[in-house]
């Protein structure tokens, strides 16, 4: 039996009943983004980016990731606008209560953690899924 724990809250870009579930992947450089889109499980991945600008994540948007989480930005940011056009669930300026530390001291879920994005309301919520 799996359990869900709320670990992150941010601003939801667009409301939807879509269930976005996937494994976390933090992408920090353009090379990491380019390598990532060649991998087989892109559509089952929820990616995390630091900023809210769109061009950095454009290959991931086009590749059809399961969801997007940002640590900065807002729905009016370019990435917010584009995630809406691609209909990819997106939670922005997310604050996590539990996880690992990035090189800059930000708390995020570890790569490979399974999460579910709840984008049914104005707030976006990130739930950690554990078996």
């Amino acid at each position: 039996m799996s359990t869900e724990t709320l670990v992150g809250t941010g601003i939801n870009v667009f409301t939807s009943d879509t269930v976005a579930v996937g494994k976390i992947r933090f992408l920090d450089t353009p090379d990491e983004v380019l390598d990532f889109i060649e991998e087989p499980d892109v559509a089952e991945t929820v990616v995390i980016s630091r900023g809210g600008t769109t061009t950095f994540m454009s290959p991931a948007l086009m590749a059809g990731v399961a969801g997007l989480i940002t640590l900065q930005g807002a729905p009016e940011s370019h990435l917010g606008i584009l995630s809406r056009e691609f209909s990819i669930p997106c939670v922005m300026s997310t604050t996590f209560t539990d996880g690992i530390q990035t090189g800059r001291g930000e708390t995020i879920p570890a790569d490979g953690s399974r999460v579910r994005l709840d984008i049914s309301g104005d707030k976006g919520q990130v739930f950690l899924l554990e078996d």
Partner: peptide, 13 residues
């Protein structure tokens, strides 16, 4: 609304 858009990682906009 976009003040905290943050860094791009690709283009220093």
């Amino acid at each position: 609304g976009r003040a905290s858009e943050g860094e791009s990682g690709l283009i220093p906009r």
